[in-house]
C-alpha cells in the first residue's frame, strides 16, 4: 500500500517539473488501472506486514530502551543493554552469556549429529528394495508426535527412576541421572533429538535422487570403489542441501523453546535456553518487557552474526560450475 502511495507522489512530483500536468495524471491512472489487481492480491500480506511485523519491530526497539512493564515506563536510555553486558554481580552478563552458550552448544552438537545419522539412514533406505517405502515412512513417524506429547514421553523415559535406567540395569550397565542430572541433561536432550531425524532422511533421499547416474557410471569406469564414490561424488553433490539445512536448523535451534515443556529450565537451570529466558523475563511474573525486548534484539544480532559466519565459510559448498 505505501509503495503505491510513494510511487504516486513520486510520479506527481516528477510531472510537476514537466509542463504537461494532465498528461501525468493520465499516466498515473493508466498505471493504477494496470496494477491495482496485483495490489489487491497483496493487500492482506501488506496489511499483516505493517500490523504484525513493522509495528511490533519498531515498538520492540523503543521498548528495549525503556523499563516498560505493560502499564507505564519511567526511564529512557540504553540501561537494558548496559545491564545485559554488565559482568558484575548486579548485571546479567553471566546469565545471558550462559543461556546463549548452552543454546549454541546444544545446536552445535545436535545439528551435525542429526545430519550425519540421517545421512547413514538415508544410505540404508536409498535403494529400492521390497518394502523400503514402509520403512521410510516408519522412520518419519516419531517426528509427527506433538512437541508436548513427546516431551512428556521423554520426561517419563529419562527419569532417574525411569525405564531408560531399567534398560541399562538389564544390560548390566551403571545407571545415569539422564534429564534429572545437571551434567547429563544436555546429553540426554541431544539423545532425544535422534528420534527426530526423519525429516532430514527425506531431505537426504531427495538430494541423493538428484545426483545424475552418469557421474557414478563414469567413476565406475575409472575403477572407483564404493567409498571413493561416496566421498568424491555423493557428499560433494549434496553440499548445497547440507548448507541450506544447516542454516535453517541453526536459526531454529537458537530459538528452541519446546524443551521448556520437558524439563523447564533443567536441573539447577542447566538448560536455561535463551528463548526460555526471554519468555520468563517478559511473562514469568516480573513483566520486564523492556529487558525482554533488549534480549530479543541481542538474540537477533547473535543469530545474524553467526549466520553471516556460516555464509562466509561456505567454500566447501559445491554450487556446480558456472555459478
Amino acid at each position: 500500500m505505501t509503495e503505491k502511495v510513494t510511487s504516486l507522489s513520486e510520479n506527481a512530483q516528477g510531472e510537476a517539473v514537466d509542463p504537461g500536468r494532465g498528461n501525468g495524471f493520465k499516466k498515473v491512472r493508466r498505471w493504477i488501472k494496470k496494477d491495482y489487481g496485483c495490489y489487491l492480491f497483496l493487500l492482506p500480506v501488506i496489511f499483516g506486514f505493517f500490523v504484525f511485523t513493522a509495528y511490533p519491530v519498531l515498538s520492540s526497539l523503543l521498548y528495549s530502551f525503556t523499563n516498560y512493564n505493560g502499564v507505564f515506563f519511567s526511564k529512557f536510555g540504553a540501561f537494558n543493554f548496559a545491564q545485559l553486558f554488565d559482568p558484575s554481580e548486579f548485571g546479567l552478563f553471566k546469565d545471558v552469556a550462559f543461556s546463549f552458550g548452552i543454546t549454541f552448544l546444544w545446536a552445535l552438537i545436535s545439528i551435525p549429529l542429526g545430519m550425519v545419522l540421517s545421512f547413514l539412514v538415508a544410505l540404508l533406505v536409498n535403494k529400492e528394495v521390497k518394502g523400503v517405502g514402509v520403512f521410510r515412512l516408519l522412520y518419519y513417524m516419531p517426528t509427527i508426535i506433538p512437541g508436548i506429547a513427546i516431551s512428556f514421553i521423554w520426561a517419563d523415559v529419562f527419569r532417574e527412576a525411569g525405564i531408560a535406567n531399567q534398560f541399562l540395569a538389564v544390560l548390566g550397565l551403571p545407571s545415569s541421572q539422564w534429564l534429572e542430572g545437571e551434567n547429563t541433561a544436555l546429553g540426554t536432550l541431544v539423545l532425544t533429538g535422534v528420534w527426530g531425524i526423519g525429516g532430514n532422511v527425506i531431505m537426504w533421499l531427495a538430494a541423493l535422487r538428484n545426483i545424475g547416474p552418469e557421474l557414478y557410471e563414469a567413476a565406475s569406469l575409472d575403477g572407483a570403489g564404493y567409498f571413493t564414490k561416496l566421498f568424491r561424488i555423493t557428499i560433494p553433490m549434496c553440499t548445497p542441501m547440507i548448507f541450506y539445512n544447516l542454516i535453517n536448523a541453526f536459526i531454529a535451534a537458537m530459538q528452541a523453546f519446546d524443551v521448556y515443556a520437558m524439563v523447564g529450565r533443567g536441573p539447577n537451570d542447566c538448560l536455561y535456553f535463551i528463548s526460555i529466558r526471554i519468555y520468563e523475563t517478559a511473562f514469568g511474573g516480573s513483566n520486564q518487557y523492556g529487558l525482554a525486548c533488549a534480549m530479543g534484539w541481542l538474540m537477533f544480532v547473535v543469530i545474524a552474526i553467526l549466520t553471516l559466519i556460516l555464509f562466509k565459510t561456505n567454500k566447501w559448498v559445491n554450487y556446480g560450475e558456472g555459478e
Partner: peptide
C-alpha cells in the same frame, strides 16, 4: 531473519 522473540512482547501488548 527476524526471531519471534523480537516481536513477542509488543505483539502481546497490542
Amino acid at each position: 531473519m527476524l526471531p519471534g522473540a523480537v516481536t513477542m512482547v509488543p505483539t502481546y501488548v497490542m
